[in-house]
Design a binder for these strands. Sequence first.
DNA 1: GATGAATGAGCTTTCATTCAT
DNA 2: CATGAATGAAAGCTCATTCAT
Lengths: 222, 222, 222, 222
Amino acid sequence: MFSYSDPRTRSPMTPKRPKRGVRQARQVRAQSTVKAILEAGARILAEGGWPAFNTNAVAMRAGVSIGSLYEYFENKQALIDAIADGHLAAGEALLAEGAARLGNITHNAELITALVESAVMLHAREPRLHRALSSEVPLSSKVRERAERLRQGLTGLVAQWLASRVAEPRIAAQLLVDTTDAVVHRWWTEDDGRLVHAERLAFELKSMLGLYLRDLISRSDD
Amino acid sequence: MFSYSDPRTRSPMTPKRPKRGVRQARQVRAQSTVKAILEAGARILAEGGWPAFNTNAVAMRAGVSIGSLYEYFENKQALIDAIADGHLAAGEALLAEGAARLGNITHNAELITALVESAVMLHAREPRLHRALSSEVPLSSKVRERAERLRQGLTGLVAQWLASRVAEPRIAAQLLVDTTDAVVHRWWTEDDGRLVHAERLAFELKSMLGLYLRDLISRSDD
Amino acid sequence: MFSYSDPRTRSPMTPKRPKRGVRQARQVRAQSTVKAILEAGARILAEGGWPAFNTNAVAMRAGVSIGSLYEYFENKQALIDAIADGHLAAGEALLAEGAARLGNITHNAELITALVESAVMLHAREPRLHRALSSEVPLSSKVRERAERLRQGLTGLVAQWLASRVAEPRIAAQLLVDTTDAVVHRWWTEDDGRLVHAERLAFELKSMLGLYLRDLISRSDD
Amino acid sequence: MFSYSDPRTRSPMTPKRPKRGVRQARQVRAQSTVKAILEAGARILAEGGWPAFNTNAVAMRAGVSIGSLYEYFENKQALIDAIADGHLAAGEALLAEGAARLGNITHNAELITALVESAVMLHAREPRLHRALSSEVPLSSKVRERAERLRQGLTGLVAQWLASRVAEPRIAAQLLVDTTDAVVHRWWTEDDGRLVHAERLAFELKSMLGLYLRDLISRSDD
DNA sequence: GATGAATGAGCTTTCATTCAT
DNA sequence: CATGAATGAAAGCTCATTCAT
């Protein structure tokens, strides 16, 4: 559900020691340090999972001293939260796009396709990192809430589209979204993406969701 | 997907140092010690998750010395594997039952219901333990393979039932099984089971799976 | 104000991990470990002061692993509190003795002498440790309260003796006690005990306190 | 015993790198920077004690970069020594004043009052800073010697006044000075100045010192 | 001279594991 | 066999100090 967030929303970007007269030149260096740390953290998480994720390893991998890491992240939790935040931002961007294009969607198939495609997009980019963040890593409640909000947002979007077409849009939306996300999640995380018949399964998934959706609409036509 | 495994498959059960000239009495005591450790471990995992799971805590909770724990389990990994094995055994039992009753199932709805009910059953018993084992805890490849085999077994069972009814039973079975498991997993692990509309959602899930299944069958009738 | 306390009052003596069926044999080993740690800590404090007092150094000096230290002391604070407690216990013992002998004291001079002698006794034993504990070391409020209670106890004892002799025993007692303690403290901690004229000064101190006391009594006789 | 020291004795005041062809303007700026740092340090020490005193915090509080701090103070020790020096200077000023007025003092009571009042004055201004400097903070031997010299100076002054009146002016002076300082110190540092009966106690202290002094004089009259 | 990002030694604490009793 | 005291590698984090800009 995720990629690197725009700096405005990223609080850990500001060092603890407030600096007066911050200069651009300095900021550039600092920005790249932060970026290096976040990327190193993400890579370590993707490669070795949570057990391999320790602050010294992240700092070393980022080619930065441990002190610098703690200059920009209050503690380990803040670091993983920042990484998760970056990952979530990609999902939020996708959601925003989806919201913009929602008006153009008229056919069931389009909705279903958009849903499945975006779920796949989200998982395909960094499957191992995604798995680590969504299961192994203990995220702060703040980040968990943000992820939940993202999920609610998506469900809301789908519910909105369904509103004029089915009797209980909320329930239907939740099933559609949960099924899509859960199934895609499983396919991409189990076996480290070495899934056989991925295309075929995605087709069947869309087919199943389509059947369900059509049935819902016909039910509410009565 | 998982009760405590039969002793035959559990290697750590046999103490490292061979015992000479001792029997029954000792063995009984050993059995109960092992059982106490496994239960303590499972309870700790269920209550505090992976972060709370440390060997000293498990030994203490089991009312056993840390030395005894290491007498029966080579290391921490062997312990969690044993706990996971126990959990898997429950799933395997359910699968065996299912296999036995498969012949009696004739209607789609029965299959779907059996599938969803058993998934719920598996998750409902110890949701926190299940979550811990299926995401937080780093399991050995051996255990992961056993879990995979269980999944394959279930998929195979469903595929077998479908074989005479649809064109591509394997693909269909995988979608049915994955969807059921993934969706139920999500519902039971998100929010610690405080899911709203759980009944309603389960109904819709069955409805969706039913539609898909009926469609598959009709497709292959052509 | 202080020596090593009797085990009954020393809470950190019990390891964190509660042990069932504690055996005597084991206890002996544990006791000596705890003692070694406390003594090492006291010596380090006495020799290098608070800056030199770090848990690794204490463990090493005690000939014990750092893990053992944390087996018996929850954290660094608990360790210094335990050391301070031990030191306070000596003072409390002295106070108890004093209380027992109070009835036998009839002359001013006896009271003054007892006061000054015990203050000296307390400081003479381990001047550097005493200084470290009473100024450099950040003690927990619990220990500070205990020290305060000890002081109050002594003041109370003196006040009690004065009660039948002077108008405002509480105020007088406080001045006597504070003066004695403060002056002796200064003499013993400044210059690391290399005080010249110590005897002479103690004599003068007693003389001064005696004059004050006699005056107080005569004042209240009017 | 202490205000900010005269620049002649303060070596760290001169920046390490010699400045060529620059004057006044720079020097003024440098002076104010140093002053800001010293004041920030004093305030931090007064508010949070030694544990809160770290160079980065001082620089920030002074509104100065950490680099600038190290431009003017070789290291942390030099900084705290400079702060202590400033504090000592206030005491030295008081001592100088006292020396000037010593000739006008003829009555015992005047001496005692001057002694106690100046002790109180010294402690009353910044009790927490005073406590921090006189106990928590590890001062260099240089500063400790300067403080000792101040004490000796005061004792010498009193001894000088006593010289024509008592037999052993040095001993007597030391007891008077030590008692005053020690007792006032205790009253002002214990309980952060929330002392009850402060007035009353000061009165009694003066009374006690006066009795002692009168006795000394009468003794030497014999 | 000033800045503040960067450094890394050093400190506290945890916990899997061993081994003497 | 059972015990639990002891171990020590490893991880999180701080802060005095440096140095490129």
